[in-house]
């Protein structure tokens, strides 16, 4: 319940302040969001697997975001930023799907 409230609170804060994304961060924020979503689903799956650990969740969340952004940054420097960010999104998307499948199997036995 509290995580959901936290999500809502963050969304409301974002809506209220409407901050402009700094130009430097603009290419990385979308990737970071996808990476964080992946971490969130991973955490949920770990919870249902009974192996959830807040420290692991925190570290994986932050490292996911940082690594994803770093890959895109390196890609930008190498001139393959577009392709690499597409690749990152594809990989994270696959992971989100598999985590969601595991969660579904836990909850619905199907």
């Amino acid at each position: 319940m509290i995580p959901v409230l936290g999500l809502l609170a963050g969304a409301l804060l974002g809506l209220y302040f409407q901050p402009d994304v700094p130009v430097v961060l603009q290419p990385y924020l979308p990737i970071a969001v996808v990476a964080a979503l992946d971490a969130l689903f991973g955490g949920l799956r770990a919870l249902l697997d009974g192996i959830f650990d807040d420290k692991v969740f925190l570290v994986s969340f932050l490292s996911n975001v940082v690594v994803a952004a770093l890959i895109v940054f390196i890609g930008d420097q190498l001139g393959v930023g577009t392709q690499l960010s597409t690749g990152v999104v594809v990989v994270l998307g696959i992971r989100i799907f598999s985590n969601a499948a595991a969660i579904r199997r836990h909850l619905f036995k199907a």
């Binding site: 995580p3 959901v4 999500l7 609170a9 963050g10 994304v21 969001v33």
Partner: peptide, 17 residues
């Protein structure tokens, strides 16, 4: 608290993006 904080961060980022 940790989960709520991270979820809040995620929500914020999603809305901003």
């Amino acid at each position: 608290a940790v989960v709520a904080l991270l979820c809040g961060l995620l929500g914020f980022a999603i809305v901003v993006q």
